[in-house]
């Protein structure tokens, strides 16, 4: 792969078509979060999607291609536009900073087809949503979907402060009886025990937010006797930086160095090797890769592999997991 191929796209995954889009609107919601809207370059409607779905946004940052997943948070019944909301992460690996600083209205970008790893359980008599910060985004589309199909829902949304409460006005304006907002800096906290205690049979609980919030909600629900099959969570797993390490790719006959700020999957793609992926967040299992040889320690960070698989040293999920040691040989 050479650098003078700016229009090249990622290796096709499962043959799925890409969506070629133009940035149609950018709006700053507050100091941290910016909303991006897209329309298709060919002018036709987007494919329908289900609430909770994400799209992978391809960003051409100079010679570097970044691929970040973001929840689709526009109205699933309005297919002229897709929208995402991006929270600026100054300590992150640069994807959100690229979106905030470099992307302009009119820019052309490439999105993946929608993929849902946080779908509603449509058997639920009631959907109870608990959101923290930017974790509100998948619920916005799910609420629109339920409103269109007559679903029963209730939202409890915790933000740091009124200044940083993305979409608070829209939610409380449209759905004042279904939405409760909590501001950390005003010492408002979700009374989870009481909330869970008062739910009708057949309620499903969904949580999206920081890891601490997810653990708290899941643990509290379990302690109150909720079946875990009724408790759903989406955790935004971003690849974490780490020490550089070397990898040999057996099938391609290539050896490469994974940098401190790139993931193993990104490093493999950088060399032009076709590697499958869907979520890039350790959840879907698509990038599961066989380890042929290793001498060192795996830093497994995914939600996919079973514990025995992680301990076996025979599998790795290159989208989020890393390695420290002397030798790592992958069947790729």
């Amino acid at each position: 792969m050479t650098a003078n191929a700016p229009n090249s796209t990622a290796p096709k995954t499962l043959g799925a078509d890409k969506l070629y889009v133009r940035v149609s609107a950018i709006s700053s919601l507050n100091a941290l979060v910016t909303r991006f809207e897209f329309q298709r370059v060919d002018g036709v409607n987007f494919p329908p999607f289900s609430g909770g779905a994400h799209t992978v946004v391809e960003m051409m940052d100079g010679e570097k291609k970044r691929l970040n997943p973001y929840s689709l948070m526009s109205d699933p019944t309005d297919l002229r536009t897709y929208a995402i909301s991006v929270r600026r992460d100054d300590q992150g690996r640069g994807g959100s900073l690229f979106m905030h600083r470099k992307v302009k209205v009119g820019d052309e970008m490439v999105l993946s087809y929608p993929m849902n790893l946080f779908a509603l359980d449509l058997r639920a008599r009631k959907h109870l949503f608990v959101a923290g910060g930017i974790g509100i985004t998948p619920f916005l589309a799910q609420i629109k979907q339920l409103e269109a199909t007559g679903g029963n829902w209730e939202l409890h949304y915790s933000c740091r402060s009124p200044d940083l409460g993305s979409y608070v006005d829209e939610l409380t304006g449209h759905y004042p009886h279904s939405t409760t907002i909590y501001y950390d800096d005003e010492k408002q906290f979700i009374d989870l025990d009481n909330l869970l205690d008062g739910q009708p049979v057949g309620t499903h609980l969904y949580v999206c937010g920081p890891k601490g919030m997810i653990d708290w909600v899941r643990n509290t629900a379990t302690a109150s006797g909720w079946p875990l099959a009724h408790v759903h969570h989406e955790e935004f797993l971003a690849p974490q930086p780490g020490k550089p390490f070397a990898v040999r790719l057996n099938k391609s006959g290539l050896t490469l160095e994974v940098g401190a700020h790139e993931s193993l999957l990104e490093a493999i793609e950088r060399l032009g090797v076709d590697a499958p992926y869907l979520c890039r967040g350790g959840a879907c299992g698509q990038c599961e890769t066989d380890v042929l040889d290793s001498d060192g320690t795996f830093l497994h960070r995914d939600h996919w592999l079973e514990d025995d698989e992680k301990n076996s040293g025979e599998k790795i999920m290159p989208c989020v997991s890393r390695f420290e040691g002397k030798t790592l040989v992958l069947n790729r």
Partner: peptide, 13 residues
């Protein structure tokens, strides 16, 4: 099953 769970829009099998 793993394959089917990952079938996505625009990519039927």
């Amino acid at each position: 099953l793993k394959f089917l769970l990952n079938i996505r829009q625009g990519a039927p099998a």
